[in-house]
Design a protein around this nucleic acid. Structure first.
Length: 820
DNA sequence: GACCTGCTGCGGTCTG
């Protein structure tokens, strides 16, 4: 293209002024954008990915204006940059401003998030900036404004940054819907995404662009920057020092401290908030000299404290930070020298993301230390290393048919200018999420927002939308305001604020934890000893104390099972163990004595074998199986088998599982051989049998809480006077029960069941696992004593029943049992 | 003093 020949050098010249040289992928992005493509840039953080799209957006403007710059306010909104995290907005804004000034333009670059003042919002609405950085939620809020098409009419580009973070969530669905609207009202719109590497890159583009654009001109630009990641496991002096079960890993603390001391800056990633608290505390106990140069960071700590930590890390005031995935993304701070991962990261992408926090410069080596919390976890370290080497990364599965988000979106459009249902139906059908929606479903949704559907017709509250001159509209101001307040798809868990008596906010804690404490008790939170004073109006009041804490809070969070990519690699590594000869992974060599014990007591399965262990102990009869498919699949598989076995003979089985396998336990003999003969592991009738074996109604009921909230059935309360979570819970359950009893075809109800199958039971993955096992040779052993594979599962089961001390006793006795 | 599983993210008017 001739004009590009004139344009690209402008960007190149500016890069040269900065002392930079454009990467190949940046040039490719510039060309693709300027030639009219939509697409996705696949590049790691810290590689100048922002400039790969900021530049062509500006160049296109220069092209249209024949090189001239024009005054602010005349152009309207030209580009929207979506970030999933507010904290990233400032950095993007700085880059954009730098480029704008560098190219001699007088574009205005502005942020629009929940933190933006109402006055600034008004200003922006009247006089839009050319370049707007915002969040998916704020974009929806803009669509809820009267006259939004005028606001967006000059828009040329939407960039979805960190698209891999959004696409696997309902926030991604929200983006798809927002884009479907913008495509119609901005005819010249180009849509681009920026994504880290994921397994399903092509699907990522489809979800972003939807059917219409994906068929047109679209491109994936892959960065040529290769990251070298080195994985080093922290090993104890002897194998005996590493426990067979457990999750905390503090017994390796003395090996971790020197790593921290030898480095200028270290991030220590833990899997849970409570582990971050515990590790921080233990590190201070063991190495008091770290006080003042070490801090902690997780999602329940106040934003103010976290900001301080991020700044201090940036300014090199801090030497180490113990954190959770709260620092996975967020501030794109200067790279740290050292990364430590405590326990299994459960997924390759997460591990690589964290490793990438060190050696930030393109081409630099990233090193990550892996601290195992139990012996078998070391196999995961070897699996991670191999996955990184061969480039096996997890998929992000886009949500399909999330009717709760669609309902919210339709009301959003009704709140602003109202919508023509035929027009919007066509747009919605073009999205990845809803491409299978049919006319009947659509009509159900319309009736739901106008009448509340068949079971809620009697209540005025749910007649939110009216039809006026053929347009679906919200006319009631109260409904409109409530709706604006509840835009978004993130449903928070129940929590209480923790504040000093003086009023300073420290963070949030869950009600059930504080319920166990009495006034005067001391607990450890946000890295300090806090004395619990009282609860007043949903606020936990505390004061600092010198007394030692007797408890560390834990939070009920999401549970992450081992990813299927990790499962594949784990099984591969275990197969490697069965082969003769020295292993290339140091972890596996270290573990060989344990593996030998497994072989001696039972069997060490290779890739063509499936191991089942059957034995009797004082507790009863145990059957253990090891699919290595993550705990969700094992939970479902355990229930499935329990059901099928009890059809052979009436028997009560209790189920326990971890990421490696599951256990069935009974006080009576388990007819396992008979069960295997009747093909108890078949994937036939899987769907029905799961439904029959699990309490799927109860699971769906729990799932429905979020759906009710997102679809606007329950209102979370006005700011400052939040409705108690218990009310939210009970009212959403009420809706569930009503739909369950009177409106079985309610799409939101059906969605709850679908979500249970897809996300909680991972039905598709279970099916694949059963099919794989069907191809394998089944080996049943009858070990005399519990095996290294069995031990952690049995411990996890007992953990739920026994108090901690008793458990410790029991583990000690079991361990003694193991000695030959 | 030991005991400790369970992440992250967002978000407030209209109209003249």
């Amino acid at each position: 293209m001739a004009e590009e020949k004139a344009l690209i050098p402008i960007a190149e010249g500016w890069f040269e002024d900065q002392g930079w040289k454009p990467f190949q992928f940046q040039r490719e992005s510039w060309h693709a954008y300027l030639s009219g493509y939509n697409g996705l840039v696949n590049a790691p953080t810290g590689s100048g990915k922002t400039y790969s799209l900021v530049m062509p957006i500006l160049l296109e403007y220069i092209r249209e204006n024949g090189g001239a710059t024009s005054s602010v306010g005349k152009n309207g909104l030209r580009a929207i940059w979506i970030t999933p995290i507010k904290a990233l907005a400032k950095e993007i804004s700085n880059s954009a401003q730098r480029a704008v000034a560098g190219l001699g333009l007088d574009w205005q670059v502005s942020l629009r998030t929940g933190d933006t003042s109402p006055a600034d919002r008004q200003k922006m609405k009247k006089n839009p900036p050319e370049f707007l950085i915002t969040t998916p939620e704020s974009l929806q809020l803009m669509l809820a404004q009267k006259g939004y098409p005028k606001f967006f009419k000059n828009l040329r580009a939407v960039v979805c940054d960190e698209w891999h973070e959004l696409m696997g969530s309902k926030r991604g669905v929200q983006m798809e819907l927002g884009l479907s609207r913008l495509k119609t009202i901005c005819p010249k719109l180009k849509i681009w995404g920026i994504s880290a590497t994921i397994g399903n890159m092509d699907e990522a583009v489809q979800a972003l662009l939807g059917a219409s654009l994906d068929k047109g001109k679209s491109k994936i630009i892959r960065s040529d920057i290769k990251k070298v990641i080195e994985v080093e496991s922290v090993l104890p002096d002897t194998l005996e020092k590493l426990p067979w079960a457990g999750h905390l890993g503090v017994n390796l603390i003395d090996k971790v401290i020197p790593i921290i001391k030898n480095s200028n800056s270290t991030l220590i990633f833990t899997n849970t908030r409570s582990f971050a608290e515990i590790w921080y505390q233990k590190l201070l106990d063991r190495a008091p000299e770290l006080a003042g140069t070490m801090a902690m960071h997780h999602g329940s700590i106040s934003r103010e404290l976290r900001d301080w930590v991020e700044d201090a890390l940036h300014n090199e005031q801090l030497k180490a930070v113990v954190c959770t995935s709260s620092l996975d993304l967020g501030v794109d701070f200067r790279p740290v020298e050292t990364i430590i991962q405590i326990g299994s990261p459960k997924g390759v992408a997460r591990f690589m993301q964290r490793a990438g926090r060190s050696g930030h410069q393109p081409g630099a080596l990233s090193k990550i230390y892996f601290v195992p919390t139990h012996s078998l976890e070391l196999v995961e370290a070897a699996a991670l290393r191999e996955a990184i080497k061969v480039g096996l990364v997890e998929d992000r599965i886009p949500f399909i048919r999330s009717f709760d988000v669609l309902i919210q979106y339709l009301v959003t459009l009704a709140v602003s200018d109202g919508f023509d249902e035929r027009e919007i139906f066509e747009e919605v059908k073009e999205t990845f999420c809803y491409n299978s929606i049919d006319r009947d479903e659509w009509l159900w949704l319309l009736s739901f927002i106008t009448t509340g559907g068949s079971s809620l017709t009697a209540y005025d509250e749910y007649r939110k939308v009216e039809i006026e001159d053929g347009l679906y509209k919200v006319t009631n101001r109260r409904i409109a305001m409530r709706h604006r307040l509840s835009i978004g798809t993130i449903v928070s868990d129940s929590s209480l604020k923790v504040k000093y008596i003086t009023g300073k906010y420290i963070g949030t804690i869950e009600e059930w934890f504080i319920a166990r404490l009495s006034p005067g008790d001391v607990f450890w939170f946000a890295g300090r000893n806090l004395e619990f004073v009282r609860i007043k109006e949903m606020v936990v009041q505390v004061r600092n104390t010198k007394k030692k804490a007797k408890a560390v809070p834990s939070w009920m969070g999401g549970r992450m099972p081992l990813s299927s990519q990790m499962s594949v690699m784990l099984r591969k590594k275990l197969h490697g163990v069965t082969l003769k000869g020295k292993k290339t992974d140091p972890e596996l060599n270290f573990l060989m004595p344990l593996m030998e014990l497994q072989r001696k007591r039972s069997h060490l399965p290779n890739k063509d074998e499936f191991l089942i262990e059957y034995f009797k102990s004082k507790e009863g009869y145990h059957v253990l199986m090891y699919p290595f498919e993550g705990r969700f699949v094992h939970e479902g598989m355990g229930a499935l088998l329990a059901k099928r076995i009890s059809e052979i003979t009436p028997i009560t089985l209790s189920i326990a599982m971890n990421d490696y396998g599951f256990e069935l336990l009974s006080d009576r003999e388990i007819p396992i051989y008979e069960a295997l003969e009747t093909d108890v592991l078949t994937s036939d009738n899987l769907y029905q049998d799961i439904q029959g074996s699990m309490n799927s109604v109860e699971m769906a009921r729990r799932r429905f809480r979020d759906i009710a909230s997102i679809s606007g059935l329950v209102f979370k309360g006005y700011p400052g006077q939040q409705i108690k979570d218990r009310h939210l819970q009970s009212s959403s359950q009420l809706f569930f029960d009503v739909f369950h009893d009177y409106e079985a075809d309610n799409l939101l109800l059906l969605q709850a069941y679908e979500e249970v199958m897809d996300f909680q039971l991972e039905e598709a993955r279970m099916r694949r696992a059963l099919e794989r096992i069907h191809q394998q040779k089944i080996i049943v052993t009858e070990p005399e004593k519990p095996t290294p594979f069995a031990f952690p599962i049995m411990v996890d089961r007992m953990r739920e029943k026994l108090s901690s001390e008793k458990l410790e006793d029991r583990i000690r006795r079991m361990t003694l049992d193991f000695e030959e």
